[in-house]
Amino acid sequence: MNICWFITILLLLHSCNPGDGMDHGIVGGHVSVPHSRPYMVYIQDSRTKSACDGFLVREDFVMTAAHCKKSHLKVYLGVSDTTLLPTGIEVDSFPHSSFENKPGNDIMLLKLKTRATLNKTVTIIDLPNPWNDKILKDCLVMGWGSTKYDHYSPSTVLRELNVTLKDLTNCFEPDVICNEDPFGPSQGDSGGPLICGGIAMGIVSFHMKKTEGYLTAYTRVSQHLQWINEIMKKNNI
């Protein structure tokens, strides 16, 4: 299973290599209305130009996947089209200490060195409550990843897809949500949110080929609320 995970992570990040930055879009999705998802964050390494997705959870914190960690990350807020990026904000990275490049604990917080100014194009999305982490079946996933599983299909705009969660059991780890579907996140969508009932319930972690489609795995945010609160409190400057 570790080998499958490693291969899949490489696939998710492949479109983030220098020169591949134009390959964006959820497989089977449609173009989002510009700035209709103002919590979405585009994340890029300023040197290698590798990219991931994330979402704003506080004026000074972005949530994403731990495997997106790079040395020179910047976040871009209020983005719809990646050819029109605003000034990037430098961050300090806090990946989960138990993440080991395999399923589980694939979560990271990015502390913005300049707090976000909230407005119509930049807003915060809510996280689940510790006393109510029930996940609705009808959810939404979005990102700037490839529109094809087998090869890249260029799109510079944010895309999204409605997904119906079928089976939350028999997954890799207790904090992983799995869903098998012909469509969903692909290369470059890592770190984006799984939104159910207007709440960020999951983080895009990885996908793999199955017999009748693709299995997508999301980190279950509710399993990490204590860790999230500790990181935010410790770095509340």
Rank of each mutant, 00 (worst) to 15 (best):
N2A: 14
I9R: 12
L11P: 04
G28D: 05
G28M: 11
G29K: 09
Y39K: 07
D45G: 07
S50M: 13
R58T: 06
F61A: 04
K69P: 00
S71E: 07
Y76R: 09
G78I: 02
P86R: 15
G88T: 11
I89Y: 05
I89V: 15
D92C: 08
D92S: 14
F94Y: 15
N101V: 10
P103F: 02
N105V: 09
I107D: 00
L112A: 07
R115T: 13
L118F: 09
K120S: 15
K120L: 13
T121N: 13
I125L: 12
P130G: 09
P130Q: 11
I135S: 05
W144Q: 00
S146E: 05
T147E: 14
D150S: 15
R159H: 13
L161T: 00
T164I: 11
L168I: 11
L168T: 09
T169A: 15
C171F: 08
C171N: 02
E173G: 06
P174E: 09
P182Y: 02
P193R: 05
I195P: 01
A200G: 07
M201Q: 07
G202W: 02
K210G: 06
T211P: 01
T216E: 01
A217H: 01
A217L: 01
V221F: 05
S222Q: 03
H224Y: 10
W227H: 01
M232D: 01
